[in-house]
């Protein structure tokens, strides 16, 4: 399992465009956003947060567009299916490695942007945590959508996963507005944590089932 994870990480690190590309796109959009505003207007919390969430979601969709297609096309997915370990281990190795290389940098960059854009007093740690959790959930679901639309372009997967992600976005929004009003937001954070704890272990099984159908 750990060996498998290092192999996936190795493959990904060596293929720069699969993670450095999306990260640079993210930075470019971050730069572009303030350009559309006057220099002295202060961003509102709500807008900045929604912007960051939606952009993270889009960048993650972009970066996971071909995660399974490559392995499927060159036949190494078949080999993984026939090996002695569980097929879902292979999927979770892929998810973990792309969370490490894409999800965590994205969260950190969003957090840094937040520091520069709006004055944060009491939300520092929580906003970072919410970015990490939401990106983890996004990555899991994007992998799911990607597995469904393996060879058919990303549009199909997008159609399926985006509705699934609406509740997560709503929870994020509710958490933010509760925090801005000075109310207790820990229950929303726990809800988010619950979502990621459910999707983390469960998704690899669902995805591997779908991939098996594709391989038939």
């Amino acid at each position: 399992m750990i060996r498998l994870f290092f192999k996936e990480l190795f493959k990904m690190v060596r293929q720069l465009r699969s993670w450095l590309g999306p990260l640079s796109v993210f930075v470019l959009i971050l730069v572009a956003f303030p350009l559309t505003q006057d220099i002295d207007t202060k961003f509102s919390h709500q807008t900045t947060f929604s912007f960051l969430w939606i952009i993270s979601l889009l960048v993650i969709m972009l970066s996971t567009e071909k995660v399974f297609l490559e392995d499927f096309d060159d036949g190494s997915m078949e080999q993984h299916l026939l090996k002695s370990y569980n097929f879902s281990d292979y999927v979770s190795a892929k998810v973990t490695s792309s969370f490490l290389l894409i999800g965590i940098p994205l969260s950190c960059m969003s957090w840094l942007f937040l520091q520069s854009a709006v004055a944060m007093t009491n939300l520092n740690l929580v906003s970072l945590l919410s970015f990490l959790l939401s990106n983890f959930i996004f990555i899991n679901f994007c992998f799911f959508g990607n597995a469904v639309s393996l060879k058919r372009g990303s549009l199909l997967g997008l159609l399926i996963i985006t509705p699934l992600l609406f509740p997560v976005l709503i929870i994020l929004g509710k958490m933010l507005s509760a925090a801005l009003l000075g109310l207790d937001y820990s229950n929303f954070l726990l809800l988010l944590l619950g979502c990621s704890l459910i999707s983390g272990p469960l998704m690899p099984f669902v995805i591997s089932y779908i991939l098996k159908i594709h391989l038939e």
Binding site: V148, I160, P163, L164, F166, P167, I170, I171, G173, K174, I210, I213
Partner: peptide, 24 residues
């Protein structure tokens, strides 16, 4: 098979969306 799976995912999703969107 994909169709059936996605329909089931969707039907589980509908009450969740309804509830969350109401909430929102």
């Amino acid at each position: 098979r994909f169709f059936a799976i996605i329909v089931l995912a969707g039907v589980i999703n509908i009450p969740i969306i309804k509830k969350s969107v109401d909430w929102w």
